[in-house]
């Protein structure tokens, strides 16, 4: 096989003053792979996600991304223009709160179309058709295309946010608690949708979640974080069926069975 990792993370640490955000994290993410980062609030998973997605500069360590031209680039050394271009074309970022990732005062169609216009698409009809197609793929009625996300339910907003991110066919999507504030039934629908899209598009994804069921359903591999450190990682099935570390065992044993 000639495939190479999409993302190479080498010994990344982030300190807030003397406090540890995350420490000595290393891993590789391969094309088509979904990695779940789990842990309780304050465990450093969101800090790590921010460091990986260039929203925060790591205090030390290196994050390299395999660009479409086949070269690895150190994200921290990339020019801001290039980094921002990467973030709105080859990457996606799905926020826990859809209002953070959407423009709440422009229509659903324009929310989806914005990335297309940002990369130079100047044909209204095509942009609108693509937006309509993506709304359908995330199960939003096409006749809502001119409505603002303010008029959408939480689940619809989250699905719209996903469409907005995927419209440029990114290769890597970061998700921060994508099912965070949603009802269980809405969560199930969203999870199934994300699972299908990740599968169909061959996306790589890094998903931060505290919900082990989300990790089980979506991810191939998971990392368990505690106090800023990755304490256990491996195949998702293995970590959940045969947890080794005391904290992981506690997490797994705390899952509510219905």
């Amino acid at each position: 096989m000639t495939t190479v990792p999409l993302l190479k993370v080498n010994d990344v640490s982030k300190f807030y003053g003397s406090r540890i955000g995350c420490q000595n994290v290393s891993f590789e993410l391969w094309p088509g792979e979904v990695l779940a980062i789990v842990g309780e609030s304050g465990s450093g998973k969101t800090t790590l996600l921010s460091c990986l997605s260039t929203r925060l500069m790591p205090t030390s360590g290196k994050v390299e991304y395999h660009m479409r031209d086949g070269q690895y680039r150190d994200l921290a050394r990339m020019a801001e223009a290039e980094r921002r271009f990467l973030m709105r074309t080859d990457w996606g970022f799905v926020h826990q709160n859809p209002a953070d990732g959407l423009r709440m005062t422009v229509s659903a169609g324009a929310n989806v179309g914005e990335r297309l216009m940002a990369v130079g698409d100047r044909h209204y009809g095509n942009i609108r058709a693509t937006a309509a197609d993506w709304l359908r793929r995330v199960e939003i009625e096409e006749d809502r295309i001119d409505d603002q996300p303010r008029a959408f339910s939480g689940g619809m907003r989250q699905r719209l946010q996903i469409a907005r991110n995927l419209v440029t066919a990114p290769r890597l999507v970061f998700m921060d608690e994508p099912t965070g504030g949603l009802d269980v039934s809405v969560q199930a629908r969203l999870l199934d949708l994300v699972r299908g899209l990740v599968h169909d598009l061959g996306l790589s994804a890094i998903i931060v979640t505290h919900d082990l069921a989300v990790a089980r359903l979506l991810s191939h591999r998971m990392m368990v974080m505690k106090d800023g450190l990755v304490i256990e990682q491996g195949l998702t099935d293995r970590v959940l069926d045969d947890p080794r570390e005391p904290y992981t065992q506690l997490l797994v044993s705390s899952i509510l069975q219905v």
Binding site: R103, S107, G109, A110, G113, M117, Y124, I127, D146
Partner: peptide, 10 residues
């Protein structure tokens, strides 16, 4: 262009 898109959409 998002602004102009909104114009046409409306």
């Amino acid at each position: 262009h998002v602004k102009l898109y909104e114009d046409i959409a409306r």
